[in-house]
């Protein structure tokens, strides 16, 4: 086959009018693509925002001090979420105390100490797959192991442990990513000054990774707040008209852990319970509970996004 060479007019020859036409047709199609994309995005975002807006419109009217300080009741007009939000608070305290130290320690160990090899590779695959395990499976695990295996009962402690297990992968993965994103030069500089591995970790790595770790912890907790299925599975009660004993007491030693062993309910369970009732009045207070839940998770995630945004700006220079 002869290699054709073209003269000065080669590409500008007849075929080119066709080429110009094809290209300008393609350019016109771009407008269609852009408009279509915009429309699809507008539809999807509107749909999502409408659903949330609808919830707010239905429920926001019932938000009041009474609603926050009343126990659930058979009468929707008198029902409130006192036991639910207090329960959520207690469970979150347990979850945070377990998941954050263990998760951060595991993340630091995996990233800084563990030898790279098939074992760390295997652990990595497991951690990222654990993050994808349905939450209800964690609930079953907790039911079999904590509730019946260890005989801990259906308590705040068990719920906190279950949710801690659930968010552990999130905390581990974000800790590792935070550590990994620290410029190597910081660590090398510290080693160059004669610091040992522990000092480098404590004085340089952890402070530099703190915003990233914090983001992961907050996102994890916000997920835990919204989780319903595993808590139902371990058998949380849905109708609770009492509060666990307070953690601070008047007598020495002023601290009490009796609340750990109490029965409880949490916000999402309360909402689930009221949603499943046939009466429309209960649906309204379910919506109100939903508004409280969404406000909680949105503010937590908002803080996390804000921290990350600041972090990204900080590294730029």
């Amino acid at each position: 086959m002869a290699v054709t060479t073209d003269g000065p007019m080669g590409a500008a020859s007849k075929t080119n009018q066709e080429a110009f036409d094809a290209v300008s047709r393609a350019q016109k199609k771009d407008i269609l693509f852009a408009t279509g994309g915009l429309i699809v995005m507008a539809i999807a975002m509107t749909l999502l925002l409408t659903l949330i807006g609808d919830l707010v419109i239905r429920g926001a009217g019932r938000i009041s001090a009474d609603f926050m300080t009343s126990y659930p009741s058979r009468l929707p007009q008198r029902a409130g979420i006192l036991s639910a939000w207090v329960g959520t608070l207690y469970v979150m305290v347990v979850t945070a105390f377990l998941a954050i130290p263990i998760g951060v320690a595991a993340g630091l160990y995996l990233e800084e100490y563990a030898k790279k090899g098939w074992l760390s590779n295997f652990i990595e695959i497991n951690v990222s797959n654990l993050a994808g395990v349905p939450s209800i499976v964690y609930g079953l695990l907790a039911l079999g192991l904590f509730v019946y295996g260890f005989n801990l009962g259906k308590t705040i402690l068990v719920a906190g442990m279950t949710l801690a297990l659930l968010i552990l992968p999130i905390v581990i993965v974000s800790t590792r990513e935070a550590v990994r994103s620290i410029p190597k030069i910081i660590k090398e500089g510290a080693y160059g000054l004669g610091a040992d591995q522990w000092q480098v970790m404590w004085n340089y790595v952890i402070p530099a990774a703190r915003p990233g770790i914090l983001t992961g912890a907050i996102v994890g907790l916000s997920r835990a707040i919204g989780e319903t299925a595993p808590i139902i599975t371990i058998g949380a009660l849905t109708f609770i008209a009492f509060l666990p004993p307070p953690p601070v007491t008047g007598d020495f030693p002023f601290l009490s852990f009796a609340w750990l062993n109490e029965g409880f309910t949490v916000l999402p369970i309360q909402m689930f319970n009221w949603t499943s009732r046939p009466q429309a009045d209960f649906h309204t207070i379910a919506a109100t509970t939903g508004v409280v839940l969404i406000a909680l998770t949105f503010s937590l995630n908002g803080i996390a996004i804000w921290i990350r945004y600041r972090l990204r700006k900080g590294y730029r220079n």
Binding site: M41, L55, S222, E227, P268, G290, L293, I294, I305
Partner: peptide, 25 residues
């Protein structure tokens, strides 16, 4: 604007979506 909004929406508790399904949609 849209990316953080999507991240926020990911955080909506699933029981709330259950509410949407049964009582709105």
């Amino acid at each position: 604007t849209v990316k953080p909004a999507l991240e926020m929406l990911e955080a909506v508790p699933t029981v709330v979506y259950g509410f949407f399904a049964l009582l709105v949609m």
